[in-house]
C-alpha cells in the first residue's frame, strides 16, 4: 500500500510516515498542495491514499483536493484531511470538494488506524 503525506510541517510528515511505515505502508511526502499535485501528475506510481493537511503555503489542502478531484488525478485514491480545522461547515466543505474522511489533530495512532480502516484501508 502506498500513501502520499502532504503537510508543511516536516515534523508532522515524519510522524505520519513513522506510524504508517510500522504497518508496512510505503510513503511519499509533499510540503504543500501544489507539490502534491505536481507529484500526482508526474509520478507514474499510484497512491492508495493521501493524508492532506489544510493550512499550507502556496496551495491549501482544500484547494488541493478540489483540484485533484476536478482533474481526476488518482481517481481511486482516498483522501483524508488531517488538520486542526474542525468546524462542521469546514468539514462539510472538504467532503463536498471530494475528501473521503477527516482526522482532527491532535490524533492518536489508533485514531488514524481506525479512520483508515473505515475507508477500507487496512494500515
Amino acid at each position: 500500500m502506498r500513501a502520499l503525506i502532504v503537510d508543511d510541517s516536516r515534523f508532522m510528515r515524519s510522524h505520519l510516515r513513522q506510524l504508517l511505515e510500522r504497518s508496512g505502508v510505503e510513503c511519499e511526502e509533499a510540503g504543500d498542495g501544489h507539490e502534491a499535485l505536481r507529484l500526482l501528475r508526474v509520478c507514474e506510481c499510484m497512491f492508495d491514499f493521501m493524508l492532506l493537511d489544510v493550512n499550507m503555503p502556496r496551495m491549501s489542502g482544500l484547494e488541493c483536493v478540489k483540484a485533484l478531484r476536478e482533474a481526476s488525478l488518482g481517481p481511486e485514491m482516498k483522501v483524508m484531511m488531517v488538520t486542526t480545522e474542525s468546524d462542521n461547515s469546514f468539514i462539510e466543505s472538504a467532503l463536498n470538494f471530494g475528501a473521503d474522511e477527516f482526522l482532527m489533530k491532535p490524533f492518536t495512532a489508533e485514531g488514524l488506524r481506525e479512520k483508515l480502516a473505515m475507508m477500507g484501508l487496512a494500515a
Binding site: 474542525s86 462542521n88 468539514i91 482532527m104 491532535p106 490524533f107 485514531g111
Partner: peptide, 20 residues
C-alpha cells in the same frame, strides 16, 4: 472530546449528528 469523535466516527456522521 476531540479524541472521542476522532475515533470510529465517520466525518459525514459527525457533521450530521453533532454540534460543535
Amino acid at each position: 472530546r476531540r479524541t472521542e469523535v476522532n475515533r470510529g466516527l465517520p466525518a459525514r456522521l459527525l457533521v450530521r449528528h453533532f454540534l460543535r
